[in-house]
Simulated scan of single mutants.
Amino acid sequence: MRAVVIQEFGAPEGMAVVELPDPSPGRGEVLVEVEATGVAGADVFIRKGAPGFAKGHIPGGEIAGTVTAAGPGADPSWVGRRVWAFTGVGGGYVERAVVPVTALHALPGDLSAVDAVALGNAGVVAHFGLRHARFEPGESVLVRGAAGSLGIMTVQLAAQAGASAVAVTTSSRERGERLRRLGATHVLDRSGEGDGPAGFDVIIDVAAGPGLPAFFARLNPNGRMVAVGAVAGMPPADFGMEMFAAFQRSLSFATFSANTVPEADRLRLTGEQFAAASRGELIPVVHERLPLEEAVRAHRAMDAGEVFGRIVLTPAKS
């Protein structure tokens, strides 16, 4: 089978398509013929050289496709079913993937594989990220870096949960108008300037990077900022000094990863969100579909900040 591997960390050109042996499912696992793979900010972060990964790593945290074989101890009724699967920190940029049955969720009949990976893990992180921030209906929310799939899902969920205001930072008027149609009430530029509330009860930060500390000033007293991504890189080492400078406003900062959510809870929520998407209550946004061999092009677009929603790789059948 074909797979995309990271041969050199850094630029997108360090990735390459290689031929690997077809995998076989082990105990409690199934083999999935992959129809769609989501390209996520975490993939970019790893490709640029995040610690803990070795050359030869296959990016991709979620896939959707059809189960073609079941290993020992796996329910054979999975064979032939359309599924979404969370592959963790990698393993998704492939034509065929082996995943444990505990990471599978059956797809509703009217939800495409492409839409499933545009919604899947992004919806999970958005939901539990808001919960981690202790968001309550009637509070105001700012989504920093809202144009990706994670930001888009956070906007929709915050609006549906009764936020008094849902502001976004983004790079253009056109993107801002698209985010308004998805639930945003105010559009700010990347620095946080624009027509919106002076302060927010909750900031969900997808971007991080050097600009993170300045947004502590946009938190209301008792405000909470939760970093759910780092698409702009790591913040400065001393970023917490801005929060300490506002000590009397009792601000809070936290990070959030879906890895801390029990797998059963993630899958339960995924099922609820897939059903909501089938009813038209959640909107997966797909920026572009690309064949597997164009993963480098996908990562170039991510690096350039050109993506609104999610790029989806669609491995061709062989």
Rank of each mutant, 00 (worst) to 15 (best):
A237Q: 14
F308W: 01
P262Q: 07
R181F: 02
G223P: 02
F247A: 14
T185S: 15
D22H: 08
G61E: 12
R178K: 14
G194I: 09
R175I: 00
R131K: 15
R144K: 10
P23W: 09
D110I: 01
F53H: 05
S164P: 01
E33T: 13
A237M: 11
D238G: 03
G305H: 11
A298E: 07
E13P: 04
E242Q: 14
F45R: 15
Q160R: 15
L282T: 05
V4Y: 11
E95M: 02
A16S: 14
L182P: 08
T270W: 13
P315T: 05
W78P: 05
A147D: 01
R27A: 15
A264C: 02
G271Q: 04
A275V: 08
A103K: 04
E293R: 14
T170Y: 02
V83R: 07
P210I: 03
G56H: 06
G145Y: 05
P21H: 07
R180L: 09
A85C: 07
A277N: 09
H287Y: 09
R190P: 00
L179S: 06
H105R: 13
A275Y: 00
V94S: 00
R279N: 11
E281S: 04
A163Y: 03
A54S: 13
T314S: 12
M153F: 01
H105I: 01
S77H: 13
P137V: 03
F215I: 05
G60R: 03
V124G: 03
H57D: 06
G38Y: 05
G211Y: 00
L130P: 08
G65C: 04
R27D: 13
V187N: 11
A245K: 14
Q160V: 09
A217I: 01
V39I: 10
V114S: 12
G26A: 02
M243F: 10
G138I: 10
V231I: 15
V17I: 07
A254L: 07
G80T: 08
T169K: 04
L267D: 05
G28D: 13
D110S: 14
E294A: 11
E177L: 12
